[in-house]
């Protein structure tokens, strides 16, 4: 297994470089212009000068290696400098956003807390609800619990957040006035009261997002459990006099985890991708909002960096999922 992991990690490097290249070329080919958001009153020559100041005058074969160098050499050097007071970066240009002219990584770091609080929390909540719901729904197939679970999760999944989010705001912020409709990203939790405030502003976006996660994962959990509950080994285990608890939670669950692990592992990187629509609706302004604003503004360095970080996480978590397959089902071999 260890050699497998090392081999996969080594393969990841060229794979990621290729992914970076494809994303770069995609952004390069896509129509769009960072000057699109400028007022029409700015004359064309001035816009052209602004484009050149952003480095857009250079062809892609200059800009792509430059980005690679900035990402893999300058940025790490800069972090080492700021941590240990060295001078490795030597004043080289970091990756700079077109929109704010500030280092891309500073903005990403600024956005992490709210994304982790809201999107991360919703994922944890969603998974924590989905697993038991899926297990019970399968074990008691076609019971009231199962029917209700199916109904809620399918409705929940098919109602898009641009509707459910606004509906929650209209109910809880406008009509009842209980919860704030606009997330305060500058809020920091220092004591009990501020923690309660944080909970109040988190509850609606977390609900909207968790509903989607729960719906999805509980369906896969239920389906996998159903497949396994009918298997011969379950009958054998019961015949041997094992308790239902051990049969279901140990044997059946363990064998049903493979699709669920896949889905969960695919979902974790998307936490860091943020939740574009939900963040917009509740003004959470996390990584999802950062990405969509950068996309709309054709802020290529920002989009490139965010998407590439996302790709790194995808590759990493898919590797983790592959390793976990082997843990849950030792028969799986990769060589």
């Amino acid at each position: 297994m260890l050699t497998y992991i090392i081999r996969r990690l080594l393969i990841s490097i060229p794979a990621l470089l290729l992914i970076a290249f494809v994303i770069f070329m995609l952004l390069e080919l896509a129509p769009g212009d960072p000057m699109a958001s400028m007022p029409l009153t700015i004359p064309a020559e001035v816009k052209q000068q602004m484009r050149e100041a952003l480095g857009l005058g250079e062809p892609w074969w200059v800009r792509f290696p430059l980005w690679l160098k900035q990402f893999f050499i300058v940025e790490p050097a800069y972090w080492i400098d700021s941590a240990f007071g060295t001078d490795l970066a030597g004043g080289q240009q970091r990756i700079i956003s077109f929109q704010s002219r500030s280092p891309v990584f500073d903005t990403i770091a600024e956005r992490m807390p709210q994304t982790l609080w809201v999107v991360g929390m919703s994922y944890v909540v969603g998974v924590a609800i989905a697993l038991p719901v899926g297990i019970i729904s399968a074990y008691r197939q076609y019971s009231v619990f199962d029917q209700a679970g199916t109904f809620v999760s399918m409705i929940g999944f098919s109602v898009p957040p641009f509707f459910s989010g606004v509906l929650l705001i209209v109910i809880f912020s406008v009509s009842l006035g209980w919860l704030p409709s606009i997330y305060d990203t500058t809020h920091s939790v220092t004591d009990w009261d501020s923690f309660v405030f944080q909970l109040r502003q988190m509850v609606m976006p977390v609900m909207v997002l968790a509903l989607q996660t729960t719906a999805q994962i509980s369906r896969y959990m239920r389906a996998a459990m159903l497949d396994n509950l009918g298997q011969d080994y379950v009958r054998t285990a019961r015949a041997k006099g094992m308790s239902e608890r051990i049969v279901v939670l140990k044997h059946v669950l363990r064998n049903s985890m493979i699709p669920v692990i896949t889905v969960i592992a695919l979902g974790i990187p998307s936490i860091f991708g943020g939740a574009i629509i939900t963040e917009q609706i509740f003004k959470v302004n996390g990584l999802g909002q950062l990405l969509i604003i950068a996309l709309q503004g054709n802020d290529i360095p920002m989009v490139m960096t965010l998407t590439f970080l996302f790709a790194v996480l995808i590759v990493m978590f898919n590797l983790i999922a592959d390793v976990l397959y082997g843990v849950f089902d030792p028969r799986i071999r990769y060589d």
Binding site: I23, A30, G32, L295
Partner: peptide
């Protein structure tokens, strides 16, 4: 084929939808 196909899957997972659609449109 596993390695190749799964890296392809990783690539598609990482592609941002919006620019992809824009390029397809174009």
């Amino acid at each position: 084929l596993d390695g190749l196909l799964m890296r392809l899957t990783d690539l598609f997972l990482a592609l941002p939808l919006l620019p992809l659609l824009l390029v397809m449109m174009l």
